[in-house]
Structure formats: C-alpha cells, structure tokens
Nucleic acid binder design. Structure first.
Lengths: 115, 115
DNA sequence: TTCAATATGTAGATCATCTATATATTGAAT
DNA sequence: ATTCAATATATAGATGATCTACATATTGAA
C-alpha cells in the first residue's frame, strides 16, 4: 500500500533516532533498514534524509564520524547522543499519545462526561 | 501534552469523515467534538477546518445544507456521502498500515529474512 | 568500458498545517 | 442600552516537513 507522505510527516526524526539507538549507521543504510523493518512502508528519500541528519547533528542529537570499517569506502557513521536519546523518549511518548487519540476517535461512539 | 502539528498532518480528513459518519455536523461543532473525543489532543483551527470542508465538498465527499434546527441561528451542516464513506474506509486502512509500521520499527530488534 | 547500485549532497516544489485577520450573531453581565 | 466573550464562518499568507530533480563520485559486475 502507498502511504500518504503527510501521514509520515513528523515521525521521521523519531524513527531515525530509534534506528541509531540500536546501532551506529550511515545514511544510506538507514534508508534501507527503515524500508526493511517497515515492510517497505517507509521509503525515505535521500533528499529528505541527509538534510535531516545534518540538522540533528547541529542540534547535538547525533554525532558523526568517518569510518571505512568492512569496506574500502569511507562512510559517514552516525551515533545517537545522550541528548538524542532524550528526544527519542519524548517523541515516542508523543507518538503513543497521538496514536491513542486517533484510535479513540476512530472507535466512535459518544464520550461520557467525566465531571 | 502538546502534539507536533506535523504528526497530525494527513489524519485530519480521516477524522472529520469519521465524525460525519456518526452524525451530520456543522463546522464549529466538529472542532469541539474532535477536541472532546481526543481528550484535547486535537484542537483543529478554524483556518484549517473550513478550507478543508470546502475542498471535501468540491470532491463530493461531503455535502452541505443550511439549517436552523435547535437554534435561532442558521448553521451549515455537513453530511458524508457514499463516496466519502469509501474514502474513509481507505484512509482508515492506510492509517492502520502506517501505525503498524511505526510500531514495528519502535519495537526494535532485527528483522528476519522471509526468503 | 559501460552500467546499475551504492553513497552523499543541495535547491526548489509541494502541500497540509498554522497564525492572523475579517465579519457577524448570540447571550450574559454591567 | 452597551459591552464583551463565545459562537460561527471565511480567506490570505506563513511555516515546515516532505518530495522531486539534479549533481557528484565510488564500487563491482557484465
């Protein structure tokens, strides 16, 4: 199924931080892993990813180092910082709150007053 | 909790159609019901709602009639059409697919190959 | 040597939300 | 009577996260 991009909007940062919480990764790898783990629901574009990574780096949420581990090629690996882990925690709470609220509305029926 | 607007992006049409599936409503009422049913998670702005309603009407997803039922005041009531119900069905499926994929990534761990 | 896949990057377009502004009615308080 | 907050609808322009399109370069296979 093709997912409306605007639905994905706002969740990308959280998903990237989550990936980095598991292990250090380079940009291209994050696009692939996100696609795999979501059964191709998320196919993040390079033009979205790289500016986002640079922005997260500037904010101190991730840090970057170059490495040629396991490859002749030098890649830019990203690592989540303590600050980034804090942001991830907040974003996860926000997502859960949001998803609950949507499902609440979709469930339908009348809300009873609590007063 | 304050929810990032970009997270809400893309779900508004679905939520409005869902409200109208339950009963005919006028614009201002939809803002209030959406807020109540979501425990104030969604506080849709008038500047978002009215253009959206007009757009949905043009697409034939909802239809509009004026009425002064239960009030001295003439209000514009909106009603969901058969086409609108079809769109709602699609949007719900899309939302469920999306939410599942996000939770899949958040769950973490390695995805095992299915081949 | 040609080409697809890998890998990183920037500029500008798109689109759904927002804020700000406008208008008018209703009902309650002064 | 008059003022004011809440109700009710509406439009214009700003914002912000995504996208497409373009640019560059490396790697490995045909």
């Amino acid at each position: 199924m093709e997912i409306d991009k605007s639905l994905i909007s706002g969740s990308t940062t959280m998903l990237l931080l989550k990936l980095l919480e598991e292990k250090d990764m380079y940009g291209y790898q994050m696009i692939e892993e996100l696609s795999t783990k979501s059964d191709n629901t998320f196919s993040l574009k390079a033009g979205t990813l790289y500016p986002l990574l640079h922005s997260l780096e500037q904010q101190g949420m991730v840090c970057c180092y170059e490495s040629e581990a396991d490859s002749a090629r030098v890649r830019k690996y990203y690592s989540i910082t303590k600050k980034g882990k804090g942001l991830l925690r907040d974003k996860k709470a926000e997502w859960q709150h949001f998803a609950f609220a949507v499902n609440q509305v979709l469930k339908g029926g009348t809300v009873h007053a609590t007063t």
